[in-house]
Simulated assay, not measured.
Amino acid sequence: MAGKLVTIGFDADDTLWHNERFFRLTQDRFATLLQDYADSNHLMDRLLQAEKRNIGQYGFGIKGFVLSMIETALDVTGDRVPGSVIRALIDAGQDMLQHPIELLPHAREAVTALAETHRVILITKGDLMDQERKLAQSGLGDLFDGVEIVSQKNPTVYAEIFSRLGDGPETGLMVGNSMKSDVVPMVEVGGWGVYVPYGLVWEIERADPPVASHRYHALDHLGQLSALIERIETG
C-alpha cells in the first residue's frame, strides 16, 4: 500500500459513466409533452422543487425522478393531465432504466491502474437495482474491493465507509463530479476530495468548492488522477 493514501473511492454516475445527459433528454421530452400547459422554464422550476421535496421519500435515481415528473404534470394541469402523457412519462423512465452504459474517457484506465496499487472502492447514490445494473454493464465491477450504494453522501457516511474498508478517511481519497456529494463532505471529514467536472450539473448537487483546504483538488479528467495521487504521496 502507498504511504499517504490507502483507499481510493470513486463516484459512479457522471464520474465513471454518463448519466445526467439522459435526465436532461428526458426533461426535454417532459417539456414537450406539457408545452400546452406550462412554459419550459416554469415547468423545470416546478420539477426541481418536486425533486427536492421528494428526495427524502424516494431517494436518488430514475424512479424518484419519474414520480416527480408525474407529480409536476398533475400540479401544472390541475390534475387534468391526459393519461397518454402519464404513459409517456412512464415509458421515458423505462427507457432510462434500459439505456446501455457508456464509460467516460479514461475511466477504465484510471480504475485499473489504481486497483494495482491501492484499495479501490465505489461509492454511489441511487436506486439499488439500477446502480447494480449499471455497474454490471460497465465491466468495472471486478476491479473494486468494495461497492457501497448509499442513500446519502455526507461526512458521517464517508467516515464509516473509509474506516470499514480502509484505514479511515485521513488516508482516503474520494473522486467525483459532485462538489456537494463527492468532494465537500470528504474534505470535511479529513480526507482528500478530487473534483472531476462532468459539464452538466444537477442543481441539487451544486456547492462551493472547499478551496481553503489543501486536501481539495480539481482535475480536467480522470486521465490526470494517477499523476495527482503520485504528487500527493511524494509531496
Rank of each mutant, 00 (worst) to 15 (best):
M1F: 08
M1P: 15
A2W: 15
G3S: 14
V6M: 13
T7I: 15
R21F: 00
D36M: 04
N41L: 03
L43S: 12
R46I: 03
R46E: 03
A50L: 07
E51N: 01
K52G: 02
G56M: 13
F60K: 04
V66S: 01
T72A: 06
A73R: 04
T77F: 08
S84D: 09
I86Y: 06
I90S: 01
G93M: 09
L97C: 06
L97G: 10
L97P: 07
Q98P: 00
P100E: 06
P100V: 05
L103D: 05
L104K: 03
R108N: 07
V111D: 08
A113L: 14
A115F: 01
I121N: 06
T124F: 08
T124K: 07
Q131N: 07
G139D: 08
L143T: 15
F144T: 10
D145M: 07
E148C: 15
I149N: 02
I149W: 05
V150I: 12
V150P: 04
N154A: 05
P155V: 08
Y158C: 10
A159E: 15
E160R: 09
F162H: 12
G168R: 08
T171K: 13
L173W: 12
S178R: 06
S181A: 12
V196I: 14
Y198L: 01
G199L: 02
V201F: 00
W202E: 11
I204E: 09
I204C: 02
V211G: 12
R215S: 15
Q224C: 11
I229R: 06
R231H: 01
R231M: 02
I232F: 10
